[in-house]
């Protein structure tokens, strides 16, 4: 048993080391963040299009994982970029551009969640739109896993879902999450720990349901 414990610890430490190599810096395809921000503030439309290209997938995925609806995710993505477009002059550079973008996106997610439209038909977009239905390479098992993950995420409270999505899927650091959500790092830590435990239980439930 002790050997098993040691093995797991080694694996965990390797995992940490591996994660340590991952850079979370803004990838701007040759444009430094400072230059990009300057161009955005000058109203450079090419720069804005560049920004959209850089962040739309991230924002879209974040919104989808939080709302569980592709259409809401599209709304949020659009509103986020419009918010960025109109509010660029308010960006003072106190935080990273990415953090600022995530903060705007999170605010829109919250707004959407609050005014959830009951008259809308429930979407099960993954049934029709999932990558598995377009990409023959993806197996049904992968699709099931992805579906279970999404259902488990939606089983979390909103606050827990936020931190899990930002950290585990968007790979933000704790301080970036704290900046984006406007909460202390200690709160991020405790929310993330509790969320992951709850997520583990939910995923276990789905796995046992599937058997």
């Amino acid at each position: 048993m002790a050997i098993m414990h040691n093995t797991s610890i080694i694996l965990v430490e390797r995992s940490i080391r591996k994660r340590g190599k991952v850079t979370y810096a803004l990838v701007t395809d040759g444009l430094s963040e400072r230059v990009l921000v300057r161009k955005l503030k000058q109203g450079d439309e090419q720069a804005f299009a560049h920004l959209v290209k850089l962040y739309e997938t991230r924002v879209y995925n974040m919104a989808y994982r939080i709302t569980g609806s592709r259409e809401d995710a599209e709304d949020i993505t659009q509103e986020t970029f419009l918010g960025i477009h109109s509010g660029m002059t308010r960006f003072k550079g106190a935080s990273k551009l990415s953090t600022w973008i995530y903060r705007i996106a999170m605010n829109h997610c919250l707004e959407h969640t609050r005014r959830h439209r009951p008259e809308m038909l429930p979407l099960q977009d993954d049934v029709i739109h999932s990558p598995s239905s377009n990409d023959p390479q993806l197996s049904a098992e992968q699709a099931c896993t992805s579906d279970a993950i999404q259902r488990a995420l939606l089983g979390l409270s909103y606050e827990h879902r936020q931190v899990v999505v930002l950290h585990e899927l968007q790979e933000l650091t704790y301080s970036e999450i704290a900046d984006s959500l406007g909460i202390p790092i200690g709160t991020v830590k405790s929310r993330l720990f509790n969320a992951m435990r709850r997520l583990k239980d939910l995923l276990t439930d789905f796995a046992s349901d599937g058997e």
């Binding site: 989808y64 699709a143 899927l169």
Partner: peptide, 13 residues
């Protein structure tokens, strides 16, 4: 759990 959740598809807008 952390490894598992990262298996979620990245959806393309």
């Amino acid at each position: 759990t952390s490894v598992l959740i990262k298996k979620a598809h990245v959806l393309q807008p």
